[in-house]
């Protein structure tokens, strides 16, 4: 099933937090160099699924994963795979901007430094900031604290921080939920620019945003026992205009959620 146009693929993925099953039987292929949106009512497990893609769930005590996530043809949950390497190649942007309490420069340089790519740091940092459309705004304050930036700038800094590692995939967990409409628009523009070179997976509670930015869309829901399942997955235009599943239709027409 996986071919050149697939970047990440979940196969029969299940996730538990101790005795609570958070995800059930998720299978989906994330296309390369496109934007995939995951939508659904809150608590349906969309963020949990996203965190399965770079093994961030490993950090939560009591979490267990069954099934596979294929990346580059390898299961990232195989015994010989190091989660550090997974996270190095699959970047993540979080819900609330979370810059380190360090300078702008040090924030972007953090990833290259820990991963041993410290040779031409200035170049890497400038390039990443340019890609994140932040360079012009911060080039004169590279060595000032990142905490002084506005919320939208901080979030673009977090994107630049991820780009500095040249990841193949960028996971975004509701990246605009803490931002105002103008800052949100800037991030969305940025995502569209980046889409040609990176595979982006975005979790969003905002259906308009999913419709605006994504190529593919997945709709998730909770079952009776609160486990998240994938209801429907397909091209965004099709999913929003002609949903195949009754539950998807109810959700996008605003009948619940």
């Amino acid at each position: 099933m996986a071919n050149n146009s697939t970047s990440l693929e979940a196969r029969k993925l299940e996730l538990w937090y101790r005795n609570f099953q958070a995800l059930r039987d998720i299978s989906m292929a994330i296309p390369r160099n496109q934007i995939t949106a995951i939508i659904g009512p809150s608590g349906c497990g969309k963020s949990s699924l996203l965190r399965c893609f770079n093994r961030m769930n490993d950090l939560i005590p009591g979490s267990r994963v069954k099934g596979e996530v294929l990346f580059d043809g390898r299961n990232i949950y195989a015994a010989d795979v190091d989660p550090t390497e997974v996270r190095y190649r699959i970047g993540m942007v979080f819900q609330k901007p979370n810059p380190f309490p360090k300078s702008v420069f040090e924030n972007v340089a953090f990833g290259p430094r820990v991963n041993g790519l410290a040779d031409n740091l200035e170049e890497i940092v400038e390039h990443a900031l340019q890609r994140a459309a932040l360079w012009d705004e911060v080039k004169d304050r590279l060595h000032k604290s990142a905490m002084e930036l506005s919320g939208g700038q901080q979030q673009r800094l977090c994107i630049a921080r991820t780009l500095a590692l040249e990841p193949e995939v960028i996971l975004m967990d509701e990246p605009c939920s803490a931002l105002d409409p103008v800052a949100t628009l800037k991030i969305e523009d940025l995502m569209r620019t980046l889409a040609g070179e990176y595979s982006i997976v975005i979790v969003t509670h905002n259906m308009q945003q999913a419709a605006r930015v994504s190529d593919m869309a997945a709709f998730m829901m909770m079952e009776q026992d609160r486990a998240g399942v994938l209801v429907e997955y397909g091209p965004t235009a099709r999913l929003f205009t002609n949903p195949k599943d009754k539950r998807t239709e109810d959700y996008i027409t605003g009948r619940f959620g």
Partner: peptide
Amino acid sequence: VPRSLRNAAYGLGAT
């Protein structure tokens, strides 16, 4: 120290 800072670093491949 907020969890989110640790998550950011782990997300960048830090040990």
